[in-house]
Amino acid sequence: MASSHVNALQTKHAGLEAKLREEMARPAPDAAMIQQLKKHKLRLKEEIARA
């Protein structure tokens, strides 16, 4: 059960990474959105490390 939780977290992390790359590739990236995505990604990474 724990591994399925970790897999779900890793999937969310990968999705955030994709959104982050997409936002940064825009001609005028939204700095606030980038910061929010990075913080969320970091929280997920920390939760994965604890699991």
Rank of each mutant, 00 (worst) to 15 (best):
15 G>L: 14
2 A>S: 10
28 A>G: 10
20 L>P: 03
8 A>Y: 11
49 A>Y: 06
23 E>F: 05
13 H>W: 10
14 A>Q: 13
45 K>G: 00
18 A>F: 14
34 I>D: 02
49 A>P: 01
43 R>P: 00
35 Q>Y: 11
21 R>A: 14
9 L>F: 08
46 E>Q: 05
40 H>V: 08
51 A>S: 06
40 H>M: 10
50 R>S: 05
35 Q>P: 01
19 K>V: 05
46 E>V: 02
26 R>F: 04
9 L>I: 09
22 E>M: 09
20 L>T: 06
12 K>E: 14
39 K>E: 14
24 M>S: 05
12 K>Q: 14
11 T>R: 14
39 K>Y: 11
27 P>V: 11
1 M>G: 12
40 H>D: 07
41 K>R: 14
20 L>D: 01
42 L>H: 09
44 L>F: 01
46 E>L: 07
20 L>S: 02
6 V>K: 06
21 R>V: 12
24 M>A: 08
26 R>A: 09
39 K>P: 05
25 A>H: 06
9 L>W: 09
49 A>S: 07
20 L>V: 10
28 A>V: 15
18 A>S: 14
33 M>S: 07
47 E>P: 00
14 A>F: 13
15 G>N: 15
3 S>C: 06
15 G>F: 15
21 R>E: 14
29 P>F: 06
7 N>C: 08
1 M>W: 11
12 K>N: 08
49 A>G: 00
4 S>M: 13
9 L>P: 02
25 A>I: 09
3 S>I: 11
43 R>L: 06
43 R>K: 07
38 K>Y: 09
4 S>P: 04
35 Q>T: 15
2 A>M: 10
1 M>P: 11
9 L>G: 01
16 L>G: 04
45 K>Y: 05
1 M>C: 09
2 A>R: 12
2 A>P: 06
38 K>N: 08
38 K>I: 14
48 I>R: 01
32 A>K: 03
8 A>L: 12
36 Q>P: 00
8 A>T: 07
28 A>W: 15
40 H>F: 03
17 E>V: 15
39 K>Q: 15
26 R>C: 03
10 Q>A: 05
46 E>R: 12
8 A>E: 08
38 K>V: 15
47 E>A: 02
10 Q>G: 02
43 R>M: 04
37 L>T: 08
19 K>D: 07
21 R>F: 13
